[in-house]
Design a protein around this nucleic acid. Structure first.
Length: 365
DNA sequence: AATACGTGGCA
DNA sequence: TTGCCAAGTAT
């Protein structure tokens, strides 16, 4: 041991992170989640798929009730593939990132048509399915099929960035973090390891105030050695969020029905239901009336609906018109009674709008 | 590579 | 109140 024999060259070399230490921690502290199989059992690939799509950029607490509802309504991939897209969108309403729901449905169809109703086990084949990117392909491969794969999500990135004190800012550091993450993989238990990394990130190695004293990897962690684990990962500055304005037209029929239409199949809130409105633009529309679904005595309500989307904030003024029970719906529009609201694919912003149409409709929960 | 794409909770 | 954050993907 030449190095150790020379005190002048000897440095305190931190131990490399041991995958076994994390797995041992996971065996004691793993969270019980609705989509997790009983210990030692492999989870149904459809359930892994469903949960992973829902969990993209979405918290466990938010996902849980949606996951239960979907699984009860569509217990397997064939059932989901056979469902009308409108029903899937309606069930997804409120979860956000609605392209996920469209792709979820398209993916179920693809699995049935291209793979005989069986999810493929290979990352590459999974990656070819709609809505399944690098993370989800790896997650399904590891968790449902016990394949050697690294589903590098935000938790992995945070844990790895701290373990190795990666100073490069995200998202550019992503490739480097992935390489480092691969060095951590164990020789077995790939599914458990993937979920252990996520549990560690969610409960110990948290974005703020990480609980380093409880961490199975506190000893090899470079960021902790530096005394500032919460400084990692470094993130690039995000773009400012502009505000857009618009006017939403609340046409209320004498029996309480509200005039509704469906948004274009792609883009923002693609395929979802909405109250007709002007375009949403920074600066707003100079002449809202030309965008009204029909001519009527529109009254500006003393109400503004505000809503924050991922890349802009919205301020919606409300115009209301009360119309006779025999009023016709313009082309592309339909009347929906309050009792039918739950069957519609109203995103959260529209639930806020509709709360102003019906005093007895409370809107988003 | 950069941007579009939701929502709700928390400090 | 404002900004940050959560099991990302598509283009």
């Amino acid at each position: 041991m030449p190095a150790a024999a020379n005190p002048a060259v000897a440095k305190p070399v931190p131990a490399l992170p041991d995958p076994g230490a994390l797995l041992a921690w996971y065996d004691r502290h793993q969270r019980r989640l609705p989509w997790r199989a009983p210990s030692g059992l492999r989870q149904d690939p459809y359930r892994v798929f469903l949960s992973e799509i829902m969990l993209q950029q979405t918290t466990v607490v938010t996902v849980a009730p949606y996951y239960d509802a979907f699984l009860r309504r569509w217990p397997d991939v064939e059932a989901l593939a056979d469902a009308p897209l409108e029903e899937v969108l309606s069930a997804w309403a409120g979860l956000g990132y609605y392209a996920r729901a469209r792709n979820l449905h398209a993916c179920a169809k693809a699995v049935c048509e291209r793979h005989g109703g069986q999810f493929p086990a290979d990352e590459e084949a999974l990656l070819a399915l709609p809505g399944i990117g690098p993370y989800t392909a790896a997650a399904i491969a590891a968790i449902a099929f016990e394949r050697r794969a690294a589903p590098v999500d935000g938790n992995w990135e945070r844990v790895v960035a701290r373990l190795f004190a990666v100073a490069d800012p995200l998202p550019k550091a992503r490739a480097k973090l992935r390489v480092l993450a691969l060095t951590l993989l164990p020789r077995a238990r790939y599914g458990d390891f993937a979920q252990a990394m996520m549990d560690l990130g969610a409960t110990i190695c948290t974005p703020r105030k990480p609980a380093c004293a409880l961490c199975p990897w506190q000893s090899p962690c470079a960021a902790r050695a530096l005394g500032a684990p919460e400084r990692y990962p470094v993130k690039a500055a995000k773009a400012a969020r502009p505000t857009r304005q618009g006017v939403a037209f609340l046409a209320v029929r004498a029996d309480g029905a509200v005039l509704v239409r469906s948004r274009p199949p792609k883009g923002l809130l693609g395929g979802m239901s909405e109250v007709p409105s002007t375009p949403w633009e920074t600066g707003g529309s100079v002449h809202p009336a030309i965008h009204a679904p029909f001519s009527a005595s529109w009254t500006a309500l003393n109400a503004t609906v505000t809503h924050v989307f991922s890349h802009f904030a919205l301020e919606l003024q409300l115009w209301r018109a009360d119309v006779p029970a025999d009023a016709r719906a313009p082309a592309g529009h339909r009347w929906v009674l309050p009792g039918g609201f739950d069957a519609e694919a109203f995103p959260s912003v529209m639930r806020k709008v509709l709360a102003h149409a019906q005093p007895f409709f409370t809107g988003p929960e």
